[in-house]
Design a protein around this nucleic acid. Structure first.
Lengths: 186, 204
DNA sequence: GCTTTAAAAAGTAAGAT
DNA sequence: ATCTTACTTTAGAAAGC
């Protein structure tokens, strides 16, 4: 018996932090191999780590956004690599910068096909956005936990907007309950 | 103060002019789309409601007017696709879709998902297909939707495939290209939906 | 509101073969 | 006709227009 919650996989974690030091991005772009910096397009410098794979947006203020990591541990690991790289360039970086998780994107499988038309009406048109002409997924905004769930006809779903690790699990259990109560789960 | 008074008049005039512009745009687009007068009236009501609830702030008048018309067509059961609406509007399709979702949510329109069957009469008649083909296409849509094939699929593509299939079954064949053109979808989409629908109907 | 980053879901589209 | 690539949706931070 495999519960839908057991199929949850974190796909992306977005986090922010800061080194507590202003940066000269022009100079950093020169000293940091592989850095992408196009100030005309975007004010942040893009730096990618290979292991773990992640992308960091480094700003002049010293603030950093890390995205693309597959776990919170990976976020810390990737940022740790970046902090060391900066220190290696004689840039003072705070001892242990606070890292804040801003968003976690997860995927899961409910294990049954879904009738999205019936679900749109059953879950309540006021909380649902389902426009298959524009996007095949049904968008459901849940209040507790405060996340957005994308549901597809295949039964596969995406949970995003959560900041805590267990938000996805709570959300999946809740949406399964609601769909089941409507008699729309397989 | 006289100045304050004049400003009020100016603001009122500007607002009145904007409303007139929006309503004339709705009228122009509705004519181009060939929708009945009743739909234009529903669109006007939706636009005025959006105006009263201050939903136009930060959005273009034309965008809200177009979205109101798109919503009105759906509400009246004679939907136009976003592509069709975008063709007669000066607002990009992406913005129409976004604005529609916004006003639909804020005004609590609660419109049900578009039913592919609602496109059948219009698409079929512009292809010169008979009543028989239309009812066959409708049947195909009902049967395949009941079997869960509709979830996530574009209503226009779904309708187009059913019309194509029905035209074959009734010996009034239209090519995939002809159907694709009136429905504004690609032949690939018709082919994909057609295969699933034929199988759902039990025709291998 | 936009710009950039990453990732999943599934449908549709465009260009190449 | 089939393949590849790319774009649609969701969330969130960053700095600046």
């Amino acid at each position: 018996m495999s519960a839908p919650a057991d199929s949850i996989e974190i796909q992306n974690v977005v986090a922010s932090t800061g080194i507590g030091q202003e940066l000269d991005l022009e100079a950093l772009a020169e000293d940091l191999p592989g850095a992408d910096f196009n100030p005309d397009n975007f004010p942040g410098l893009v730096y990618r780590t290979q292991e773990p794979k992640a992308a960091a947006l480094i700003f002049r203020s010293g603030k950093i956004v890390c995205t693309g990591a597959k776990s919170i541990d990976d976020v810390h690991e990737a940022l740790g690599i970046i902090f060391e790289k900066l220190r290696g360039l004689s840039i003072p970086v705070d001892e242990d910068p606070e890292i804040t998780v801003q968003n976690i994107v997860s995927s899961a499988d409910l294990g049954h096909n879904l009738n999205l038309n019936a679900l749109a009406i059953g879950l309540g048109l006021e909380d649902v956005e389902y426009e298959p002409e524009q996007f095949p997924g049904l968008v459901y905004r849940m209040d507790e936990p405060e996340v957005v769930i994308l549901l597809f006809g295949s039964g596969k779903i995406v949970i995003t907007g959560g900041k805590r690790t267990d938000d996805a699990k709570t959300a999946v259990e809740e949406i399964v309950k609601r769909i089941d109560d409507l008699g729309l789960l397989g | 103060r006289l100045r304050k008074w004049q400003e009020r008049i100016r603001t009122k005039d500007a607002g009145e002019r904007n409303l007139q512009f929006a309503l004339s745009e709705i009228d122009r687009m509705a004519s181009a789309l060939g929708v009945p007068r009743s739909v234009r009236e529903v669109a006007s009501v939706i636009y005025r409601r959006a105006l009263n609830e201050d939903l136009i702030r930060g959005r273009s008048i034309e965008g809200v007017a177009t979205s109101a018309l798109y919503a009105a067509c759906r509400q009246e059961g004679i939907p136009r696709s976003l592509d069709e609406v975008a063709e007669v509007s000066r607002v990009p399709q992406k913005e129409i879709g976004r604005t529609y979702r916004y006003i639909s949510q804020e005004l609590g329109l609660e419109l049900k998902p578009v039913d592919p069957k609602q496109f059948v009469p219009r698409f079929a008649s512009s292809l010169g297909l008979s009543e028989e083909v239309q009812s066959k296409a409708t049947e195909i849509i009902d049967v395949s939707a009941e079997q869960g094939l509709l979830s996530g699929k574009s209503p226009t593509g779904f309708a187009a495939a059913a019309i194509y299939a029905a035209s074959l079954l009734c010996n009034e064949k239209k090519t995939q290209r002809e159907v694709a053109d009136v429905a504004q979808v690609t032949e690939v989409t018709i082919r994909n939906r057609y295969q699933e629908q034929i199988e759902a109907m039990g025709f291998r």
